[in-house]
Amino acid sequence: MNVALFLPCYVDQLAPDVAWATLRVLERAGCQVDYDPDQGCCGQPFLNRGALREARALASRHLRCFAGAAAVVSPSSSCVATVRRRFGELGVSGAHESGPRTFELSEFLVRVLGKTQLGARFPYRVAMLQSCHGLRELGLGTPSERAGGELAPSPLESLLRAVEDLALVSVERPDECCGFGGAFSVTHPTLSARIGRARLRAMADAGAQYVTGTDASCLLHLDGIRRREGFGPRAIHLAEILANGASVPELAS
């Protein structure tokens, strides 16, 4: 299957390993992956601040860039949520047509390709970070607020449970926000840190060695706190766990 890779700007600039891992995982799952280096930004940071003119311009450019793709996949649930849920509100032409073709990585693997087993091994205790956009905007799993009905496991959880020797730890308040919130992380740094610290503490209390999830932005924020405070699980993106295959990453200090 042909897939166009859609990378958040911060993954491109700050976490290229996540991009390479995403590429490898998609190829291992049997996809032909195309990457257009001219792609820009979906416009989320601008939309998040209310800069609608810039957001619209970037959204139009994004749609033009990915116009021909049969499926667009991104290692970021918040970027995908912006395309699927917010482009329409921005009134950008072609928004509704591109929406359903854009998927977050775990969602694509499990719900589109029907694959959970990718031959990965990761012998550590891992906490899941259920990113808010993925959970509540894209429906990647059942949020804890929902009453009644079974709690369907998220694609993230399904994939992690299929990883050899990986022990998923259960954390209190499993889907509480990590406190990143985009611009919020720098406009409200005290609160952003308070919320993030609390998540790290809960994961540490649950015995997690690693924290993983679908959004590198949340993970960078938590890992930044970990490196400052000196406690808490190390962050690693889902794609990096799945891409490891038989190799084991070093637990560098």
């Binding site: 808010c132 905007e137 990143f180 985009g182 406009t187």
Partner: peptide, 9 residues
């Protein structure tokens, strides 16, 4: 409105 992470809870 800016004092929020927009987590949606």
């Amino acid at each position: 409105p800016h004092a929020s992470t927009l987590c949606g809870s």
